[in-house]
C-alpha cells in the first residue's frame, strides 16, 4: 500500500518532469524556427539588390520605368549592345586585369621580401623601423593625393600605369601579415643550412623561404587583388585617356553617359559584379577564414 503510493507519486512527478521537458523542447523548437526564418529573411534582403540588378538588366527601358520586375526579360542583348557601342567596357575589364595582376604580383613579392627581412634579420633599426611601418598604416590614403598627382606629372608618368602599379610594393599591411607568417612558418635552422650550402641571402629567400610562405602569400593575394580591382580615385586622377581606364572608372562614366538609359546602366554594373561572384565562389572559404583570423590578430 505504502509502496504503491510512493511509486504512484514518483511516476506522477516523472510525468510532470517529462511534460515540462517536452514543453521546453517545444518552446525552444519554436524559437529555433523563428530564428531560422529571420536568418533566411536577412539573407534574402542582403541579396535582393543584386537580384533586382540582374533581373532589371534584362528588360527594356519602357518596362523598367513602368512596373516592378521580378522575372527575367528578353532585352539583355539590346541593353548590352547600346552599352558597348558607347563605353568600351571589355577594354576596361582588360585594363583592370593588367593593372590588378601586375600590382598584386609586385605587392606580394615585395611584401614577402620585406616581411622576411624584418622577421629573420636582427639589424640595429629593426624595431623602430617596424613600428614606423605600422604607424604608416594609420595615414589616410587621400592625404598626399594632390602631391602624388603633381609629382607623377613632373616625372612624366601621368596617363601611364606605372603610378598605379609600382606603389603596390609599399604595402604596410602586406609586410605586417607576411612578417608574422615568416616568424612562424620559416625555421631559422633551414636558413642556416642554406648558408652552409653556400647560397647567398637572396637565393635562400627565393629557394627556401618563399616556397614555405606560399600558402599565406596566396591568401594575401586574394585581398590585394580585390582591393586593387575596386580602386577608383587614383586611376581616375592619373589616367586621362578613356580607353586606358579600369572598370570602376568606366562604370562611373556609364552612369554619366547613360543618364536615362537604365537598362544599359544595369548591364554595366552587372558586368562589374559577375567576376567578383566568380572569385568569391572559388575562394569564399579562404576569404572568410582569413577575415576572421585577421580580426583576432589585431
Amino acid at each position: 500500500m505504502r509502496n504503491n503510493s510512493i511509486s504512484a507519486m514518483a511516476s506522477r512527478s516523472e510525468e510532470q518532469h517529462d511534460s515540462e521537458i517536452r514543453r521546453n523542447q517545444r518552446k525552444s523548437f519554436l524559437a529555433k524556427i523563428i530564428i531560422w526564418i529571420l536568418l533566411i529573411l536577412a539573407a534574402g534582403i542582403c541579396l535582393l539588390p543584386f537580384y533586382s540588378m540582374m533581373i532589371t538588366a534584362t528588360h527594356a527601358n519602357a518596362d523598367i520605368t513602368r512596373k516592378l520586375l521580378l522575372t527575367p526579360g528578353s532585352h539583355l542583348i539590346d541593353n548590352y549592345q547600346r552599352l558597348v557601342d558607347v563605353v568600351p567596357i571589355w577594354r576596361g575589364f582588360l585594363n583592370s586585369l593588367i593593372i590588378t595582376v601586375s600590382a598584386t604580383a609586385i605587392g606580394l613579392y615585395f611584401s614577402a621580401l620585406s616581411g622576411y627581412g624584418f622577421s629573420k634579420f636582427n639589424f640595429k633599426w629593426n624595431g623602430p623601423l617596424f613600428a614606423f611601418v605600422l604607424a604608416t598604416m594609420m595615414i589616410p590614403g587621400q592625404l598626399g593625393i594632390i602631391g602624388f598627382f603633381k609629382l607623377m606629372n613632373m616625372f612624366g608618368l601621368i596617363n601611364t600605369y606605372w603610378p598605379l602599379i609600382v606603389p603596390a610594393a609599399n604595402n604596410a599591411f602586406g609586410l605586417f601579415f607576411l612578417k608574422q607568417v615568416a616568424d612562424s612558418a620559416v625555421p631559422k635552422e633551414l636558413l642556416e643550412s642554406g648558408r652552409i650550402d653556400g647560397c647567398n641571402e637572396l637565393q635562400i629567400f627565393h629557394r627556401i623561404a618563399l616556397p614555405l610562405m606560399t600558402p599565406a602569400i596566396a591568401t594575401l593575394g586574394i585581398f590585394l587583388f580585390i582591393g586593387k580591382w575596386n580602386e577608383f580615385l587614383q586611376p581616375m586622377i592619373i589616367l586621362f585617356d578613356n580607353s586606358l581606364q579600369p572598370l570602376p572608372v568606366m562604370i562611373a562614366s556609364v552612369r554619366n553617359q547613360f543618364s536615362v538609359d537604365y537598362g544599359a546602366q544595369y548591364v554595366g554594373i552587372a558586368i562589374s559584379v559577375v567576376p567578383i561572384i566568380i572569385v568569391f565562389a572559388l575562394a569564399s572559404k579562404k576569404i572568410i577564414g582569413n577575415v576572421m583570423a585577421g580580426a583576432l590578430k589585431q
Partner: peptide, 15 residues
C-alpha cells in the same frame, strides 16, 4: 550564410 552576408563587402564601391 557567412558567404552571403560578407559578399557585398567585396563588390566595387562605385558599383
Amino acid at each position: 550564410f557567412h558567404a552571403i552576408f560578407y559578399f557585398p563587402n567585396m563588390v566595387t564601391p562605385v558599383t
